[in-house]
Design a protein around this nucleic acid. Structure first.
Lengths: 249, 249
DNA sequence: CAGCCTGCGTTCGGTAAGCGAACATATGAT
DNA sequence: ATCATATGTTCGCTTACCGAACGCAGGCTG
């Protein structure tokens, strides 16, 4: 769109990202539909990606290869935030025996950039690179606190938000209340707002200048922990590590 | 190179991967040199990647954004191997209190596709998407066992291999011996072959048809554990989980 | 089972997107 | 201050990519 844009590159990356949205394998037409590209363009991208080794082709379906992990590693290896966060996430996991994650805001989504897996096998689908809607996730409600009032109003203008469960906050005022509460208490607790049976708590990470740069979160099954437990037992540990991490930035 | 290749896409991906090799931030010329592209081409790619949000530009340097994690997630979310491995890696980590990783062979390198971090903060630089040379890593010596004799001979033809430490096996016969031993004992132990002060052990993962598809590894500081401990205490746990994982494939 | 039809993968000539030589500008050495 | 070297940017030519058009397979219908 700009004066100088490599259209082919943009299309290929769009195809690669299409594999992420719960579509482990795609035909040419699938990819075309998922990206809005013409079938011819999708085909060109996929054959090129196959030649480069990023995807495989079995005669009908294209699927990503481990090669694409090398691309994401470019961020994990270079950015200070995920590197510094890792020990803190591991410490939180050890302290409360649940998986701990870190997310940043990107593109109106909560994007997970680091994670320390606990031994439980609940498999929330959260892993590095995963994304969640801001309004329905504990990390998102914390991260929205970084926006000033006009930015927040812009975001809330997209309301009503799609309900993920009966408890999802779908109106602008409901979401705004959560954000205010998260700012005031330095934590956000969501109870089955994203998925039924799933509780989640997030706390903010501020850099030395006070800017909110990330959120640390822990999710757990509602059959195992209560909201009170999240607030009284998990939050202090998480806030302590979030503060320690913030000082290192 | 092929009848139909999207050159722009290939170049852009080459640029993105260039950020991975210990080059957290690049100028146009840096990227040009790292990839072999013309400066003009590198510039076009980088400006496009900036517009797409995959990298940022501060007036001099380009650096990757968390956005690129979304690409790698396409594999982690879709492939069964890393997903099934995660609980086993967590269990191994809990059992022996050290970080556990899983790698596959790709492109004459050992490519890490899953990891469960322990609470120790040794920071080996190993994370998902990281790569190590096959000949100098425990995972690599295990994974080379999947090659038939001609393939192995092809690989060994690249000898002598660059020494990473005084103990690195650099000759074809030295590497071949390690591979044979790894095949025979279902484990590979490297003692300061990759990095001074670093011990590592890897065990193979076979799918139900018997094919060697991955390696599970644990690394630890030589100041904390001995080779005997790796073999007698770590290996049994790892082999048990590797076997259990193999049956699930 | 013939006939139609919808959706898929593939082809091919026109065109503009991207190529690199050439130019400008910054950096650093003498 | 002057030159040398390396970096970033421009621009006209070409070729690599675009998408309308084509052929083909499988599925529904009468």
């Amino acid at each position: 769109m700009a004066v100088e844009g490599m259209a082919g590159l943009a299309k290929g990356l769009a195809i690669l990202e299409a594999f992420g949205d719960g579509a482990p394998r795609l035909t040419i037409s699938d990819a075309s539909r998922a990206t809005g590209l013409s079938r011819a363009a999708a085909r060109r991208c996929l054959t090129t990606l196959t030649e480069l080794g990023y995807v495989t082709f079995d005669g009908k379906f294209f699927a990503p290869t481990p090669r694409i992990l090398r691309i994401g590693a470019a961020y994990s290896e270079s950015a200070p935030l995920p590197q510094l966060a890792q020990p803190h996430l591991a410490a939180i996991r050890d302290a409360i025996d649940e998986s701990a994650s870190m997310a940043v805001r990107y593109d109106n989504e909560s994007l997970f950039i680091a994670r320390s897996e606990g031994s439980r096998i609940i498999n929330t689908g959260i892993r590095v690179g995963a994304r969640l809607p801001l309004y329905a996730s504990s990390t998102g409600q914390v991260l929205l606190g970084a926006l000033d009032s006009t930015e927040l109003a812009d975001y809330l203008a997209a309301a009503p938000f799609p309900a993920r469960t009966p408890k999802t906050p779908t109106t602008a005022t409901a979401v705004e209340d959560r954000v205010r509460a998260a700012r005031a208490t330095a934590m956000a607790i969501t109870s089955e707002e994203l998925e039924v049976g799933l509780l989640s708590i997030a706390v903010p990470v501020h850099d030395p200048s006070g800017r909110l740069v990330a959120a640390i979160s822990v999710s757990a099954s509602s059959s195992r922990v209560t909201v009170d437990e999240l607030r009284d037992r998990f939050a202090p540990v998480m806030q302590q590590h979030a503060a320690a991490l913030g000082k290192q930035l």
